[in-house]
Nucleic acid binder design. Structure first.
Lengths: 124, 124
DNA sequence: AACTCTGGTTCCAATAGTATGAACTATTGA
DNA sequence: TCAATAGTTCATACTATTGGAACCAGAGTT
């Protein structure tokens, strides 16, 4: 097994971070990883969301997050142990991750509100 | 001339914003637009940067920013008048734009420091 | 050791998105 | 109306993403 590549924090770019988090699946994975203290692996994420994302696609997504410098991945026996690199990124780009995670949360909440409104209109 | 499409602010997504700003040219255009009070058009941007970006490419970039909800574009005679939609976005996603613009600035500064170091080493 | 299960990765082909020169359109001014 | 300027659209080459199939690696089991 070839060792996993993790870019040093000084090589992490804003563009790379934004690109990695511009995918709904990836930003959901990262938000989970960043806000909950526990680490996820691919299978956990599959179970948590109800979407059926193919495992090859999910593997690509985790790789994208890793290569953007957003997460750290290490093998723990048969599965992967993923943790966010929030601390390091906070040092390099203060406030960036918080703002993105918060915006993501805001968006989910506003979507839920819109969904309830639609349901209410339908119910009339 | 078909009227330009601008998404209403409630349709603007984090993913859309991040994707639009995950391109170095687009984030540079937007940072310029957001920080300077004056509005740029394609040609201005071409003159400001020393890069030779084809105008068709630049047109696509401005379109991407517009459709992501980041800028507002209107025709002023023969040229376009582009302004950022920072205020609206700040209301919907507080702190997001500031954090990205700031991170972009940090990155440019750290790249300049790295450049100077390289030059100093070379000079020895 | 071989077998097997589980969790992930890699390969490859289809699809989607991006870049750019060339042709085109819109507006202004002579 | 003609020319100049600013931008858009078209066509095509190129690049990135997706996801099924095959593969690989570690931990138990026989």
């Amino acid at each position: 097994m070839r060792p996993l590549f993790h870019p040093p924090i000084e090589d992490v770019t804003v563009e790379g971070i934004l690109h990695a988090l511009s995918d709904p699946v990836r930003v959901a994975i990262f938000a989970d990883l960043a806000t909950s203290s526990c680490a996820y692996n691919c299978s956990n994420f599959l179970n948590i969301t109800e979407k059926k994302i193919p495992k090859s696609t999910l593997s690509h997504h985790f790789k994208a997050l890793r290569e953007a410098g957003l997460i750290r991945a290490e093998r723990r026996g048969v599965e992967m142990h993923n943790t966010s690199r929030c601390q390091e990124i906070e040092t390099r780009f203060p406030g960036l991750i918080d703002a993105i995670i918060n915006a993501h949360k805001v968006q989910i909440e506003s979507a839920q509100r819109a969904g309830k409104k639609r349901a209410a209109r339908k119910g009339k």
